[in-house]
């Protein structure tokens, strides 16, 4: 890398430009990636900046203004305690993105460590993979509820529970791709050239695992948001009165016939967020797979 900076002749720059062009073309060829990324970015920015710029307390009740329909004053209306729904949806987005993001990051780190080690050591593989099988066998949401029942409700416990739920699937993905890469001719060639095991593990196998991992991460992010909403809906997630999409939906189920916006707004937020993450994941998968050119499999 440092070589590139120091000695960049006109020819080399032309080569880099050409390689950048190809990458740009491939990026533009997958609209899913761009739509997903933009959608997610908008949600992220709203979640960060709306609570910062808007001083309204999401938990402030104005009983006089309960169940107001969307209007100029209340962008998305109010709920049964007269709380501003727009502000609450934005605070809910913070919770959902925080939980989803943490789960995605933690389960990917843990899953990569487990997966890479499992792919490399045969005995460890058997032990780790049987544990993963056991965890996968239990329905995720049930396992999460059981864990939270044991640990108590708080956002950290939700993160912990969902991380335990999603780590096995990451570990399996990583293990599978690591094993494929291990059999590649260039890993064999590296052995002949005298590369050590650790170097092969870190410099060849890990970079190869990163692309399926990022795809997996974006899907887990989306799934974790749904799981967190489900848990909150069931009362096992983020404890009220803190705003989260799940417990807003839960609260709306008594009043939604009179005030449908109380259900539609958090519901739409979940759908939009999950959809943009899934599009992002799909787009990333196509973009990172070198066999897909111009958005189509050759």
């Amino acid at each position: 890398m440092n070589l590139r900076k120091r000695k960049t002749s006109a020819l080399n720059q032309a080569i880099f430009r050409e390689q950048r062009e190809i990458r740009k073309e491939r990026l533009l060829a997958s609209p899913a990636l761009i739509i997903g990324a933009v959608g997610f970015l908008i949600i992220l920015l709203l979640a960060v900046f709306v609570p910062l710029l808007n001083p309204t307390d999401p938990n402030a009740m104005e009983v006089a203004n309960r169940l107001q329909p969307p209007s100029g004053k209340y962008l998305l209306g109010t709920d049964e305690f007269g709380r501003d729904l727009f502000v609450r949806v934005m605070y809910g987005a913070r919770v959902s993105l925080w939980v989803g993001g943490c789960v995605a990051v933690f389960s990917c780190i843990l899953g990569t460590i487990v997966g890479v080690y499992a792919s490399y050591f045969k005995v460890l593989d058997q032990i780790l993979m049987r544990i993963c099988d056991g965890l996968i066998a239990i329905p995720g949401i049930l396992l999460a509820i059981a864990l939270i029942a044991a640990l108590g409700t708080s956002s950290w416990n939700v993160i912990l529970a969902l991380t335990i739920v999603y780590t096995p699937s990451v570990a399996r993905t990583v293990r599978a791709s690591a094993m494929v890469i291990r059999e590649q001719a260039y890993v064999e060639a590296a052995k002949v050239q005298g590369f050590g095991n650790l170097r092969i593990l870190w410099r060849m196998i890990l970079p190869g695992v990163i692309s399926p991992l990022t795809v997996q991460a974006s899907f887990i992010f989306a799934q974790a948001i749904i799981s967190e909403a489900s848990l909150s809906f069931l009362g096992a997630g983020i404890p009220a009165p803190a705003a989260s999409w799940g417990n807003m939906l839960e609260a709306s189920k008594l009043v939604f016939s009179k005030a449908p916006w109380t259900m539609i707004c958090p519901g739409a937020a979940v759908i939009l967020c999950v959809m943009s993450l899934n599009l992002l994941g799909d787009g990333l998968r196509d973009f990172l797979d070198p066999r897909v050119k111009g958005g189509q499999k050759k």
Partner: peptide, 18 residues
């Protein structure tokens, strides 16, 4: 290793694509 090297049949797959 330094003294015994190998040339593979499918050279492209024997080179790290990344």
């Amino acid at each position: 290793r330094k003294e015994i090297q190998m040339v593979f049949q499918n050279a492209l797959s024997a080179l790290n694509p990344r």
